[in-house]
Design a protein around this nucleic acid. Structure first.
Lengths: 325, 325
DNA sequence: ATGCTCATTTCGGATGCTGAAACGCACCCG
DNA sequence: CGGGTGCGTTTCAGCATCCGAAATGAGCAT
């Protein structure tokens, strides 16, 4: 099998901030699958095989097109939607009825048409956070793994630990763990936890310390003072290391925070065999590439949130938009 | 046939003030319409007639349920979605394929499941602004019209005029205009325009003046100075009146801004026959009720944006959410 | 290497969707 | 006030599409 034709180009389609702009409707080709099948939670195998088991459900696409269009129009009549989408009016009425039944759209005589309701926020509410960070980081994380060969992970604060939500071990030639996904590294001892706590806002750090004290009676004030000094050192160096006393001891793990404004959105990590990288080379071959990658990711996130057109407008932006012709 | 077994469902969780609280799944009742039919852009007739021409399209409801669930899960496998929704797995795969084809969802081995993409923002982008203001204002505007009998209108800045997007003339017993909807009252002479310009941030007001100067050569510096004085007076009184020199001269129109923070989201207006309300009664019977209504609306908007759970989180809130258990 | 889990695919059957055309309400104009 | 007209809504027949139990096989664990 030509399993190796993937790793070369990979991400060609998933590129940069624009994401899936190639809307050329990934067509359903039932007969000749080139990608074969691959479970979405596979820890090996390809990642981007363009493949679809089923042809898209047309009624769903139409409903989403109508909802999207109604969002653009703000307030729209059946005729407006017909003019923009070209869909037959009965279809539009049927879809609007469906959207109304689920509460996404309201029919309102007093504004002479249909409009979206607050419920559409449910269709979007999960994006900011994990999904956004992964979407922004993915191509760069893959690039980094291809470049330095060691696997890259991304984790976010989740309760009193870091939750690992992304891992490029699937494409690293030197994988040394089964998977990092769904691991929950400790806030105190893990590299990602340390990177997070070192760079998050002070107020949040205090909250986390308080929570750690409550849950862990063995964590006394002397440990806390010591840990605060450690975090200060992490801030100075710009990266965190895993405690050398935790497993796996054959590896070193480095982590750097992914930040936006004064917030830490996630931590990005690289880990490698101690014996494979000479101590003198670690900075050049791991830490600097990692820091550069994170810098790129942060600039993409900055662009997506503040510069891009897809941003949810603040009230000030609403006026700016209204002013624009 | 048991066509009426549709809405077992949902929306009971939809709470409070939000306007269309009667979301109890507008059931499709093919035979006995109680509401009859009514065009969505009718200027008379009822507004909330619970009626649906068609039964909801099931596939669309399922797709939206899956998308909503995936938003809650952040990252989810087919099994996760099956466990939460109870939908058969093939259906889930089909719907995910459809959502992927349109770019709303990505399948990502490196995070072991499916996740939503930035594109879901398109399904929501039209809510903030007009739709939000109308949704928040609607019940109060209706209450006000029922109370004072005169029709209420809501308009927002749109280019160099106010666009009227909402009007309760349909339920006012003393309608005196065919419709106000889709009118575009002038920024300088109309009550809504004056209310807007009086209370918007200074920076925005300068931009608007600049635009007016450019488009209207007859608007000299003396007129501008005079108008600035007028706006200062509007700020002092807390409401604006339509210029007495514009049509319709038999009416008086009053407007008050609907604000959030330092921004003006919209203007709310009441107009009435000069001869129907004695000058001494205007304040008590029109202006005060209008101001009270706007105050209620503003507090609802404040709650919806800053306090409610439906809010799109800022980066600071993301951490607050992550900290919460 | 073998078994087992679980995502994915297949396939037959019937449900549900499509959209042209008819309908009739509600506004407009004389 | 009363017909004309535009447009939102309804109907209906035909067939494309979707459903979901069961089979498949990829991928992980031991």
């Amino acid at each position: 099998m030509d399993m190796n034709s993937y790793g070369t180009d990979t991400v060609a389609d998933e590129d940069a901030y624009a994401g899936e702009t190639n809307q050329t409707s990934h067509r359903y080709s039932p007969g000749q699958d080139e990608g074969g099948s691959c479970r979405a939670n596979s820890r090996r195998g390809m990642t981007d095989s363009i493949k679809a088991s089923y042809p898209p459900v047309e009624s769903v696409r139409r409903a989403l097109e109508i909802l999207r269009t109604l969002n653009r129009l703000r307030i729209g009549t059946v005729g407006d939607l017909h003019a923009v989408t070209g869909l037959p009016k009965p279809t539009i009425v049927r879809m609007l009825d469906t959207l109304i039944a689920d509460g996404y759209v309201a029919r309102d005589n007093m504004c002479g048409g249909y409009r979206v309701t607050h419920r559409v926020k449910d269709l979007h509410a999960g994006y900011e956070g994990i999904a956004e960070v992964i979407e922004a980081s993915r191509p760069f994380a893959i690039e980094l793994t291809n470049s330095i060969k060691w696997p890259v992970g991304i984790g976010m604060l989740d309760g009193d630990a870091i939750a690992v939500h992304f891992w490029t071990g699937t494409i690293s030639p030197w994988v040394h763990a089964n998977t990092l996904l769904h691991n929950r590294p400790n806030l105190i001892t893990s590299a990602m936890g340390r990177a997070y706590m070192a760079f998050c806002p002070e107020e949040e750090r205090e909250l986390l310390f308080q929570r750690i004290r409550e849950k862990n009676s063995a964590f006394g004030s002397d440990q806390e003072a010591q840990h605060r000094a450690l975090l200060a050192n992490v801030r100075k160096k710009g990266y965190a290391l895993r405690s050398p006393r935790t497993e796996p001891k054959r590896n070193i793990t480095v982590a750097v925070p992914i930040r936006h404004g004064d917030m830490v959105l996630a931590s990005m990590t690289v880990s490698f065999f101690i014996t494979a990288v000479a101590p003198a080379d670690v900075d050049e071959r791991v830490i600097q590439p990692l820091k550069e990658t994170v810098a790129k990711i942060e600039s993409v996130i900055r662009f997506m949130r503040d510069g891009g057109s897809g941003m949810l407008p603040t009230s000030r932006d609403v006026s700016r938009m209204a002013l624009a012709v």
